[in-house]
Simulated scan of single mutants.
Amino acid sequence: MIISKGKKFKHFCLIELFFSVVISFVFSSCQKESEVVGLAATAQFSDKSLSDNLVTKLRVKLITTSAFKGLGKDYQMVAESVWQDKFIFKEKLNITPQTSKWLPNRVYETEKYVYIPPFIDRFNLQMSRGIEADFRIVLEPAGPGPYLVIFRRSISISPCPLDVPDIVFLEGWEKVNPTRAATGNSLFELWSQKQAVCLLKNPERPAILMIRGQNEVVEGQRVSIYLGSSQLDEFNLSPGPFEKIYSLTPGQLGSDPELKLVISVDKTIKINELYPGIENGRELGLKIDTLYFR
């Protein structure tokens, strides 16, 4: 079939108009969720199906148009999920450049691993099939002032699959209750000693290892992490909270059905030095808030 020059031009214009309408529709759909004129955001998780007790990578893309007039100051970008007025997770997202330097007609992107902690009671009939939670990306000001919602949607979160193996804690761990003497409660903190060992079941597929915790040694720590027979990492740790996430390949995991994870530190602090009300002189390495392998 032969198309004349006039028909070709008309045909091209119709195609261009179609794609313009589609792009405008997509942007308008995103823009409904943004409180900033001229700024649209999209957010995707690396896992198609979300569950509790899951580390997943969040990718965020921001698009500004000619209608964007700038933010005028720096904000902290935060990804958060809320269910029944309680936070499921809240993660700070780093983005370059700072928000005060954002310009019209630009695309900005960032990504980060986020952790959905265990919270679904599979024996609760209302929760056993999963829940719908509110998920949003917000810009929080450094000082007083309202935050800005730039993306929002509902996400489905299912109970963690039953075949996810537990982590078995072997030697070198200490449970500490810093408030029992004062309050009588039984809330424990989990600490490593100078060397702590736990057992992981080899999934024989790509997996993620996450260690979150706190270093209370004022001088800092030299931390070594071994997985199986290989050293996975070694790093210096300043006092304060820390997070380490490792994306592991089947080659790194090897062929053994079980793996030993070893966490070693070069310095320790005694329990009674950290908590003077406890008459216990055993040595502590790192406070472990979350140890995740899946």
Rank of each mutant, 00 (worst) to 15 (best):
Y275K: 09
G240Y: 02
F89W: 03
G220W: 04
V60K: 08
L286W: 02
F89A: 00
L103T: 12
R152F: 10
S156N: 13
V22H: 07
S66I: 13
W83V: 07
V78C: 00
C160W: 04
S81W: 00
F169H: 03
F19C: 08
K7T: 10
L274R: 15
F169I: 11
L187A: 13
Q98G: 14
K86C: 13
T268K: 00
S24F: 11
E204G: 11
I155K: 05
G172P: 03
G220S: 08
P239E: 09
N185K: 08
F119E: 03
R129Y: 07
E189H: 09
L248M: 01
S66M: 10
D121Y: 00
N53V: 01
L284T: 05
E216W: 11
Q214C: 12
I271G: 06
F12M: 12
L227N: 01
E189T: 05
Y113I: 01
T110W: 01
Y115P: 04
K270D: 11
T42E: 09
K270V: 11
S186F: 14
L291W: 04
V21Y: 12
N202Y: 03
F188C: 08
S49P: 08
G281N: 12
F87K: 15
R282A: 06
Q44T: 14
G281V: 08
L253S: 02
F27D: 05
L58C: 06
K260P: 06
P104K: 06
I131H: 03
V26R: 11
F9M: 15
R180P: 07
V107T: 08
V164T: 05
Q44W: 12
G145D: 01
K175C: 13
Y226M: 05
G143R: 15
I95E: 02
L187E: 08
E216Q: 10
E35H: 03
I95V: 04
E243Q: 06
T64Y: 01
Q214S: 07
L237N: 03
I167E: 04
I2W: 08
V37S: 13
P165S: 10
G130S: 04
G38S: 08
E171G: 09
E216H: 11
K5E: 02
L71W: 02
W102A: 06
K175L: 15
E243G: 05
V26N: 10
D74N: 14
P165F: 10
G277Y: 09
K267C: 01
R106V: 11
P141T: 07
V37Y: 13
Q98S: 15
S229V: 07
K112N: 06
T65P: 01
F293R: 00
P178I: 07
K92F: 13
N236P: 11
G38V: 10
F242Y: 05
L62F: 12
L259W: 00
H11M: 11
Q31L: 04
P241S: 13
T64W: 02
E140W: 09
Q44N: 13
L291M: 03
L50W: 01
N272V: 12
L284D: 05
E273K: 10
R136Q: 14
S20F: 14
A133C: 07
D52T: 00
R212F: 02
G277D: 05
R136P: 09
W83K: 04
G285R: 02
R212H: 00
A40H: 07
T96F: 15
G143I: 12
H11V: 09
P146F: 04
L71E: 12
I95K: 08
F45P: 02
S229C: 08
V223D: 00
A181W: 12
I271S: 06
Q193D: 14
I150K: 04
